[in-house]
Design a protein around this nucleic acid. Structure first.
Lengths: 253, 253
DNA sequence: CGACATGTTGATTAGGGTCAAGCGAAGTGG
DNA sequence: CCACTTCGCTTGACCCTAATCAACATGTCG
């Protein structure tokens, strides 16, 4: 995958395929989750779809952003880079996550499409108008932002206090939970997971180097915690055992 | 300072001192910032003040929380502890910050009063009713939550990618910025700062040990970046020089 | 005064970073 | 079509930063 630097500019909404919100796979988890009737219709009229190919840099930190979007499908990352090239991932965007911030016209972080993306976009102005007019939209966005804040804080514990092995285990547990949540299940027993990230991207997520990530995968495999079917497909042999490896006692996370 | 484990339960609002919101020192930064007229009156009727002594644990992670509050004065921390005792601070609450979350009745983190605190409290039910009725309250809370999310992500970069020296420098820069923001200034030149935290608490903030924190303070002093007036009072000799030590090129933070 | 919390500094160690070599798969171009 | 490159990944050798263990100084409080 090659990272291209070409930015995306939100032009006039293309009038192509515009499936009904009723059929939307993220209808009940996205920012529009609580909207119905008139509110939903207004969103439906304003929305437009956009596809982004894997590898594309959608926005650079500090760049002007004239749209907001729900991620319908795919995986994107938010990253921050220090001057000497060290990079830290500060957000992992999965389906139903929201991109952009009402009230701020500049991206705080570099947004990169890891896989092909499917976005449900709104131009800033009409979206912000709806934020003022309809109470359910900002209420849902607040909920989602609080969830993101919780995730960020869990991440801080990982970055600040966990060993390399615990970080990998925690990362796998997070992925397993989010995958299970989509199916409305609790993760347990044996779980097969597709890894959406390269070793390097995982390292950027976890505050490690790609070599350490690779070594810890090997160690977890050697110790019978996971099995590697392909390089990008993991099998967790027993979820409870994995939780032990995470370092945080029991229910945390 | 001794950490006591006694939880605080929000009983019926005590009817003691209840200064006018008009005189409140955090009036224009707190959750009530955008409220006026009727909205503000409603908050004014519902509020009650509470003082917490330094060292008191206000809430333990997972505990029921039947009130929310604005921090008027003092410093509090949010911390998460792993089973074997490793602890990571995930939030540093300064005046005007908001404690608690509408829609969730349980504390996500352990909240500890570092200094004596002055809180402006609301019981959950009436506060949540106002969240539904008045648009300005949730709008402001969303703004504040987004700011907290930004701060958490900046913190993630510190924890994931910075050296011990850079972490200390970044921490001092954050404190200087927040202190300056209260006076509506940009931090520059020589700045005197009171450190609200012990070396151990700073270590918990920065993902280090207290020994490393102490050593890096000594090193920054030796290198002429800071001067230590008292153990808990630092003088930044040149803010621009400090920023160089933070590792992130220029404007970041 | 003794007990304890806080902070500084030194010696040693270990976990993870850095550097380096090599492998397989997928492109790419001659 | 096949040499050649590139990408993603693994593994090894070595090194360095910060953790750990330890001693000691200072200040506060009962």
């Amino acid at each position: 995958m090659t990272i291209s630097a070409a930015p995306i500019h939100a032009g006039p909404p293309p009038l192509r395929d515009r499936p009904s919100c009723a059929d939307c796979p993220i209808r009940y988890r996205a920012v529009c989750a609580h909207c119905e009737g008139e509110e939903l219709l207004r969103l439906e009229r304003a929305k437009y779809y956009r596809r982004i190919p894997a590898g594309q840099v959608i926005l650079c930190a500090g760049e002007r952003m004239d749209f907001v979007a729900s991620l319908i499908d795919g995986v994107a990352t938010l990253t921050q880079t220090l001057e000497d090239g060290r990079t830290q991932m500060v957000g992992l965007m999965l389906p139903s996550d929201f991109l952009g911030r009402p009230g701020r016209d500049r991206a705080g972080y570099t947004v990169t499409a890891i896989t092909d993306l499917n976005l449900c976009c709104f131009r800033r102005a009409p979206f912000e108008a709806m934020m003022r007019d309809t109470p359910r939209l900002p209420a849902r966005l607040l909920e989602m932002t609080l969830d993101e804040l919780d995730a960020a804080r869990e991440w801080m514990v990982i970055l600040g206090r966990k060993t390399a092995r615990e970080r990998i285990a925690s990362f796998l547990a997070i992925l397993a939970r989010r995958a299970a949540a989509l199916k409305r299940l609790e993760p347990r027993g044996q779980i097969r997971l597709a890894l959406p990230l390269t070793r390097e991207a995982m390292a950027d997520y976890l505050g490690l180097t790609l070599e350490t990530v690779s070594r810890q995968f090997s160690a977890l495999k050697r110790d019978g915690v996971i099995r590697l079917r392909e390089k990008r497909e993991v099998e967790i042999l027993d979820f409870d055992r994995l939780l032990v490896e995470c370092g945080d006692g029991e229910g945390a996370g």
